[in-house]
Amino acid sequence: MVNAEKEVLIRIAKDDKSVLDALYKEYRDPFLNYFKRYALSEDAIKDLYQETMIAFYQNGVRGKLKDLSSSIKTYIFGIGKYKAIDMIRKQKKNAELLNVSDEFETIELDEKELTTEQQKLKRHFTQLGESCQKMLTMFYYRGLDISDIVEIGGYKDANSVKSHKSRCVKQLRSLVNKK
């Protein structure tokens, strides 16, 4: 991996979404062309690309790309292959036949549908104010520690972060328990 790509991954780890926009534009046409070989409609391939880019980006934000040895493109296309095969399998077609070996190795993802309880929690999560959503996202999605959040969120100190987080969790719990 070249230094420029390492820099890209560092920015993704910091949740710099402008990098996602740029990568989306950069790999869009090669991706759409490559996945024409799969028996998917043009719209399905576009959906596949969007999901692939999001999965790639979220892996980066959650620190799962720290040890990435391949190029970003190889990794993205690997996720794309995994998702394409999954998509075709759901359409009850013989997806394994399409898992041809080429320069892109399939990258497996641990993706699960939300449980009923999680869906309910998500509805309440979206009812929270923006600052609470942001706080809980930094903590439970990005996995940042208190000191990072103090710096990124512009908080006075660790105690301010802790009390804000505590209030947000309490608010969420009360929304859950209200229903």
């Binding site: 880019m53 979220q58 999680q118 996202t137």
Partner: peptide, 21 residues
Amino acid sequence: NLSVVAESHEKDVLSARLTKV
């Protein structure tokens, strides 16, 4: 669950962003 939900919510945010792109 909160961790999964936060990730799913962020996925929605990113999806809306990429749709605009």
